[in-house]
């Protein structure tokens, strides 16, 4: 398990770095698909197989295909100068480094916490995580579920209006 964790983290971090550093947006899109697969591996290690399947279907399947479609439609070969000016690069790296340091300090400062829920790995494996998620979605979280469907409708209409001549 530890070896798998390290393999997935190395692949995820490497591909994330490649996403923001390669020049061609199509290569970025391919690297982000690799990153999505590595994250799906994390979800399986965390005993959430349904989310791993959703990760691959929705992210690596749908969203990455939309990106590649956008790249195909837009003829991006002409865009040059991938990175903004030098000052923005320096300020960005320092700001993100500080953010990283702060979050790491915050994680270190958080002490041990007792598990509060009842959904241990044994129960999840016994019932099946798809069934548990489905029950939650249609009982406790039914209102956000309906709102999410309206959000998707709005997104479809909005995309049509934006892309329309």
């Amino acid at each position: 398990m530890e070896a798998l964790f390290y393999i997935f983290s190395i692949i995820a971090i490497f591909s994330a770095l490649m996403v923001i550093s390669v020049k061609n947006p199509l290569t970025s899109a391919l690297y982000i698909i690799l990153c999505f697969f590595a994250l799906a591996g994390f979800y399986i290690l965390l005993n959430m197989q349904f989310l791993a399947a959703m990760q691959i279907l929705v992210y690596a399947g749908a969203i990455a295909v939309i990106i590649v479609l956008a790249i195909m439609l837009l003829n991006l070969a002409k865009t040059k100068g991938a990175i903004k000016d030098f000052h923005q690069l320096v300020i960005g790296i320092i700001a993100v480094g500080l953010l990283f340091l702060e979050v790491i300090l915050y994680i270190d400062a958080a002490g041990e916490k007792k598990p509060t829920g009842i959904y241990t790995n044994a129960i999840i494996n016994k019932v099946g995580n798809t069934q548990i998620i489905g029950e939650f979605l249609f009982t406790k979280y039914v209102f956000p579920f309906e709102v999410a469907s309206i959000l998707l409708l709005v997104a479809v209409i909005g995309a049509y209006i934006f892309a329309k001549k």
Binding site: I13, A16, A82, Q88, L89, I91, L99
Partner: peptide
């Protein structure tokens, strides 16, 4: 956190809308 910071760096320094 590492992946989030890489993403934030990408938003700050890249010019390309897709990236």
């Amino acid at each position: 956190t590492i992946i989030f910071c890489i993403g934030a760096l990408g938003v700050l320094i890249r010019k390309n809308l897709i990236t």
